[in-house]
Write a protein that binds this DNA or RNA. Structure first.
Lengths: 156, 156
DNA sequence: TTAAGACCTATAGTAGCTAGAGGTTCAAGG
DNA sequence: CCTTGAACCTCTAGCTACTATAGGTCTTAA
């Protein structure tokens, strides 16, 4: 698949492109800057003007980002889309890799959820001295899931 | 609860503190810089020296971070721990808020996982032109979960 | 005394944007 | 044709939570 350039109005402003794709203009300029989008044509006054092809490309980018693909993964996917020789398996590999990452994040978050639930249900009210939550946070041994240690912080 | 300062060796170097808490020295200096840890005592030559109380405090911080609490949440928790008047309910509220966030992240990731699974299982091999993954990423309507749109990218 | 290793500060980099300042261009209405 | 206001431009800094580097200093054991 490649993005067709219809013989249609090649004069979409950055604001209109933004509205049609759900991006902000700043984000579009940023994508150009990091090379996800090529350099746009410009008016004599220097403003960017886009074609329908860019609407398609940006829609793809936004959608892939919504799916949680990293910018670098999106860049790879776009490179594949841009070259007609690409074998579908390469794309499949990226998607599967991403799927595995999502699955592992879910697992770790579930362990975290259980610990938090235990923590919260055991808190019976009172002053800080006897707070179960503080106690658990102060003492690793009160934890049941090893998964929690050494890293839920990168799960945000 | 407060962190007791035992009458023990008040001369722990940043490297030893790091090893005992599982932090890196850079991180410890960073925590000092942003005010999670107070300014450390220094040797005549200017190197930081810590007490057992700091080991406890940093252990608490690391553990809370492992639980996915943000730095700002940790700061709040520490403020509460530092003031003996704090009611346990305030701490409970922070923990519950965090729990709800974790739960919502799990939900969104599960929707994402299902979409990715559908995507991957439908990819039957072949060239880019007919790749189901690319097709789905190009076209919102092929998606079943609304949750995916407008945001899994902040789930990392 | 010397040399290795740990430490110091300051700065920049990571991801993926977002926000602001301060100035220019475009397009519609009069 | 002229004005006006919205949209656009570039450049820079900010966000989270660190991590990494450079270039220099201190400590400590042999």
């Amino acid at each position: 698949m490649s993005f067709p350039s219809y013989s249609s109005p090649q004069s979409i402003s950055i604001g209109h492109l933004a509205k049609r794709t759900g991006c902000k203009p700043e984000t579009i300029r940023y994508y150009e800057q990091i090379g996800l989008l090529g350099e746009a044509k410009r008016t004599e006054g220097g403003q960017r003007r886009y074609s329908e092809a860019t609407v398609q490309r940006l829609t793809f980018i936004r959608h892939a980002r919504d799916f949680g693909f990293s910018i670098e993964a999106v860049r790879e996917l776009l490179n594949m889309v841009d070259s007609p020789l690409t074998d579908c398996q390469q794309i499949d590999a990226i998607a599967k890799h991403h799927l595995r990452e999502v699955e592992s994040r879910i697992q770790r978050l579930e362990a975290l959820r259980e610990e938090l639930q235990r923590m919260v249900t055991q808190c019976s009210g009172g002053s800080v001295e006897s707070c179960r939550i503080i106690e658990v946070l102060s003492n690793h041994r009160l934890c049941q899931h090893q998964e929690v240690h050494g890293g839920a912080s990168d799960l945000r």
